[in-house]
Amino acid sequence: MTQAATTTARDFGRVLAQRERRFAAALLAPAFLALMATTTFPLFFLIWTSAFRMDLAMPFTNGFVGFENYSVLLADERFWTSLVVSLVYTVSTVVLQVVIGLALALLVMDMKRGQGLFRLIAILPVVLSPAVVGMIWRTFMLAPEFGIVDFLAINAGLGSKNWLGDPLLAMISVIVIHTWQWTPFAFMVLLASLASLPEDIYEAARLDRATAWQRFRRITLPLLRPAIVMVIIMRTMVALTAFAAIFTVTGGGPGTATEILNLYAYRKSFTELSIGYGSALAVALLIVTILISAILFAMRRAK
């Protein structure tokens, strides 16, 4: 009697679980089919096309070449340059965002009034399209004489500079533009996690007469670490695949001075129309992205 009852209960439970699985599958199917079609399928197709010579301007040379694109890539000086530009761009923008964002968050945290104004203004850059941001900076901010930055440089006695025409200045300019747009992101995230830190630890530290620096170094920084690492991870991913804010400002130029790997893959594929080689560059970018994120995630786990 009791055994029969438990059997039916178990059967009933199994039926319920099976129904739940089916329901879950039905709910997930549309989104997962779309995701496979728009991300997984392109990934395999990309790897496939990277094994071809696929020149849209000269279709008669097209054909399977195996790993040739990759051996060309390893000997391609422009590839290595773009990789270096990518790393310089990524590391400098991420470091600047975190340092400035953290400093400002600490400063604003202590403010009695005006926090709301900061939060409001900080939203402006992050909601804008990087394409529009790039366009505004290229013209109203950096254009020789007319742009405000150049106007200030002239009045500061530095003279008019070719901000986007000189290789070094162009690199600095695109780094500043990216930092301008995304520091508010780091600022807002770090301010939010600062606000959630427990008050009583600071009280205890104050009673122990810890200096402001000691409090920052021994309490705030360790407690903020997860948030800081998260900001670093997110911003690194974005900086590696930055596109619009460089494309609209310098187009990768002058020459290849600001051509990050992402932009090189684009230019190779859609300006020079070598889709096969462009695919190989995109695969290289994917590998770099995976390597860097593996390092960053290891950093997150480490204490």
Binding site: L35, T38, T39, T40, F41, P42, L43, F45, L46, T49, M237, L240, T241, F243, N262, A265, Y266, S269, F270, I275, G278, S279, A282, V283, L285, L286, T289, I290, S293
Partner: peptide
């Protein structure tokens, strides 16, 4: 994980398709 794929790696094959 789908977010790991660089956008340029999506647009090259999609352009062809």
């Amino acid at each position: 994980a789908t977010q790991m794929l660089p956008p340029v790696g999506i647009i090259i094959p999609y352009f062809l398709v």
